[in-house]
Design a protein around this nucleic acid. Structure first.
Lengths: 292, 292
DNA sequence: AATAACTATCGATTATTGTGATATGTTGAG
DNA sequence: CTCAACATATCACAATAATCGATAGTTATT
């Protein structure tokens, strides 16, 4: 039965143009390649090259086999890379849990960098509510977390402050608040506010709650649709709001001049003790610059 | 360097549970497997199995390698299947050009059947206008075609009638025609009609043209948006109209009792002479039942 | 016709893989 | 604990497969 070496001969011959050239490239003698290709042809029962010309030319059938050969060899390369990665102690998997309103543009840049630096390590992103992130890390289901600062985080969790996220207030264009200017805190009270919270009903953004009546959503996209339908106003991260405003879904509310924009502190979370491996450590360091 | 056989040993050992069982399954002796796995471990510099127990148990690193091994072997199986397919004379590729209003549900069934019967043959569907299909087949860029009957098809093309497609007339709910009942042919004349035609400006559905004023679209989806915006009425295949009506985009026009629904004949097209191979022949036969 | 560069084939050689025997380790039942 | 049943590791040797080196023949170019 044929070998990986035979498949390499096929690919190299096509790339180098002749059996001799392939042999030179692979550090073998010409007859070895000639016989190797011949035995591959016997095994597959397919004529791979036409030998009527001086240099062998790939047949249509050969081209079809070549596709598979290339693909198999690419995977063998991946396997070798993975073996080296294992040898360097790189993890098979890094799992990051992040608040679903924190999928910042910088995060995708970090992910791109990761895939170049650790091509064989799988990256898993769990988009959940801040409150659930602590549990995921404590139970070992996530290696790192990005969440709004909470004071009641467990002692088993390492917290690392990485910056503030600016929040702005938005409502739909039809909402009564949209027509008002110089809105003060007390103006907000009569109108329903949309807040997001986790599965366990603990509100993270509690201190941002002003209105007496509130509706809750479990993720930022639901908040968007609620707000755009005029079901209430909400505080959301400025970088989300900008998109929504551009798309025409919502408008930014005009707060009074003495109103300072709210900021929420963001923590990078990890289990206490050594991080899992070099890939996790790399992501940890990169995430410190998530907010700028 | 390691071999496909080594990777098979890894996979079989995991599946069978022990080196001995793997050896029995692979028709080898136990020591061959023991040595094979050992040499794979040396080549990759990864400990694949833990030997502290009676039966070797896969390590975490081993599990990571196993994924790759499985994937490589699956592709080798695909290569073997492709080699057999080549040997049976099956084509690498079957290209079907069809009028973009003829993507019938039955077509996806046929495609499913195809992928089971010819797993290594690639199926390409070109969705174009009827008028362009003849050219695609004549120039060898498509192997089969499905089109509305045209009388001026070339002599180089085999035409095979496969049935009629019922057409109904639709307009938007706000259109004046929507409020009318018992619409006769002459009632249609003052209103703009939306027709579809190919790139070369030849109208296929010419004999369905009633209104003096017409707008043209090059595919059925454009027709949909034109009609739903009230820019005109149109004749479209009933199975498309049903969806649009359900979605609320358009309404069916109420024609007078003596008005027979229009039918358009559908042809299966192929180049004259032998078809390319068994896969093309199979699709050809299946497409005969496209309309029922 | 001469040349350069290529491929196919074959016997000899070398490398790899498999075999069989044996020593040793693990598991679970009595 | 001891034993039977079943595993694995290792080794010398046999079998198989790959490679080498040499040679003859082919294809394009000058």
């Amino acid at each position: 039965m044929y070998n990986l070496e035979h498949l390499r001969m096929l690919v190299e011959t096509v790339e180098a143009g002749s059996f001799s050239a392939c042999a030179r490239k692979m550090g073998k003698v010409q007859s070895a390649v000639s016989q190797g290709i011949a035995s591959l042809e016997v095994d597959l029962d397919v004529e791979l090259f036409s030998r009527t010309t001086r240099k062998p030319t790939l047949t249509v059938d050969g081209a079809r086999v070549l596709q598979f050969a290339r693909s198999i060899l690419r995977q063998v390369e991946d396997l070798n890379a993975a073996a080296h990665a294992i040898h360097r102690g790189e993890e098979a998997l890094v799992r990051i849990a992040l608040d679903n309103s924190l999928a910042l543009p910088r995060l995708t840049e970090i992910c791109s960098g990761f895939s170049e630096k650790f091509p064989t390590t799988i990256l898993e992103l769990y988009s959940v509510a801040t409150f659930d992130i602590g549990q995921l890390i404590k139970s070992g289901r996530a290696d790192l977390g990005i969440a709004y600062i909470m004071n009641d985080f467990d002692k088993e969790i390492e917290q690392c402050f990485i910056g503030n996220l600016r929040f702005v207030s938005v409502c739909s264009a039809n909402h009564p608040l949209a027509k008002m200017t110089q809105i003060s805190m007390s103006d907000l009270i009569p109108y329903r506010q949309i807040l997001s919270r986790g599965q366990d009903e603990a509100e993270v953004t509690t201190f941002l709650k002003f209105s007496t009546q509130a509706w809750y959503a479990n993720d930022i996209h639901t908040v968007r649709s609620m707000v755009s339908k005029g079901q209430g106003w909400s505080y959301v991260p400025a970088y989300f709001a900008d998109d929504w405003i551009t798309a025409g879904d919502v408008v930014q509310m005009q707060m009074s001049f003495d109103h300072k924009p709210w900021n929420m502190g963001i923590d990078l979370l990890a289990p206490k003790g050594e991080l899992k491996g070099p890939a996790t450590r790399w992501v940890f360091d990169e995430l410190k610059s998530l907010l700028g």
